[in-house]
Design a protein around this nucleic acid. Structure first.
Lengths: 227, 227
DNA sequence: CCAATAGTGTCTTTTAGACACTATGAT
DNA sequence: ATCATAGTGTCTAAAAGACACTATTGG
């Protein structure tokens, strides 16, 4: 690689919901690592592999797991002279969302770190804890007026799964009435006809009508606001 | 400058409202220019001058005008191998907003290019037309649920000035009733006590209560939606 | 039968929007 | 007085939220 991109990197905070918790994907330090803490999947641009910046982000994720994020978004670019001791360094931070039931074959270095109260519970290398926190803030904000919570659910999901995603990400959720009204309107979801059964009335299983179309709502949920 | 940052740059779309039009700040080609078209204020990071990425953006603006943007926001980072013939190139695109009455002493190279229907009327160098369009889309979106329209107004402004900003930026505006309800609530504005007189009833002149606090509303204006 | 969760009906609240109304200045 | 624009009063509309209600399963 040419030295011209020496200090540009892409850092990805890739989230999933697993066993009722939000988790972020990290890489464990390996033999030639310079730190003992896990770090976000990150790396420099490889002009021969990455046509676009987004390709570089997807490539980082794929070094750890064999799955494609259903959603990928730039969170911020952070550049200054103190985040890396080698000099002025710039990183483009991404937020990636992974479906809950991807048959993920993790690399042995992959480690899913739980998120609690908006922060990863394990200390991360470099400034990665702050980067994850910023990605989580973006997620917490956008969950309230877009369809992105759906990208963290399994292929087939119930409306209660949506409410659970809110609880997991924000610590609180809108009432089911409001979730029904919002998500059942506008041909957003497709009824699979199947039901999820438990020791109670079975719930309808839905799937995303259009996996590539993120929609915006024109109001925020009040119940999910912090104030 | 070290070669290590050779292909990272910051590009700024700095907007103002002038004589009822939205304009973007551009630099005219000078003697040693490689193009005949104007370009956005842009340049590489100077680690010795720029502590943070935002500093680099502000510095670009100040090469053309002697004024500080009241609002500065990252729009996107764009990196690929076709936007610059010299190779894979990354730029962080900023949107900056300037108050309407800044006593701006422009450099002789500064050129305010009118915006019409979401695009600059004059052709810009490189991919700068696309960058401006992306910044405008962000502005058009955020004007509907934040206080950012206020950053494009003069120090003292009327409520009708806010409506005009909507018309200029979106081509349509919410009814004055809605603008009043939204902007007069929550101690956002401070009544200056002064009035603007015309051939009609004088209008109250307000100023921003807190210049550094951008607030969010939890609903979009319906009348400003495209559908 | 009961417990538990799914889902509906309906009233309230909030804020945008429509629109008629009044207010105040220049001429 | 008239015109133009500022600003208010008040009703409607859309969507969130509260909450009581019914529905459907396993046990």
């Amino acid at each position: 690689m040419s030295v011209s991109t020496a200090l540009i990197s892409v850092d990805v905070a890739a989230f999933r919901i697993h066993e009722g918790k939000l988790q972020v994907l990290t890489r464990l330090p390996d033999a030639q690592a310079t730190t003992v803490k896990p770090a976000l999947p990150a790396g420099r641009i490889k002009p021969e592999l990455d046509n676009e910046l987004d390709d570089a982000a997807r490539r980082q994720v794929r070094t750890l797991i064999d799955a494609e994020p259903g959603y990928l978004e730039q969170v911020a670019s952070i550049g200054n002279h103190y985040r890396d001791s080698r000099g002025w360094s710039l990183t483009v931070v991404y937020c990636a969302l992974l479906g809950a039931d991807l048959a993920i074959s993790d690399s042995p270095l992959a480690c899913w770190c739980d998120i609690q109260d908006g922060s990863p519970v394990c200390a991360l290398s470099y400034d990665h804890t702050a980067l994850v926190e910023e990605a989580i803030r973006r997620l917490q904000s956008k969950i309230q007026y877009t369809t992105i919570p759906l990208y963290l659910l399994p292929e087939l999901f119930t409306l209660a799964d949506i409410r659970d995603a809110f609880r997991i990400i924000l610590g609180k959720a809108p009432p089911m009435r409001s979730i029904r009204n919002r998500f059942l309107a506008g041909n957003l979801l497709e009824d699979s006809g199947q039901k999820r059964r438990g020791s109670n009335r079975p719930a309808s299983l839905y799937r995303l009508a259009d996996r590539n179309c993120t929609r915006l709502f024109n109001r925020l949920y009040h119940t999910t606001q912090s104030e």
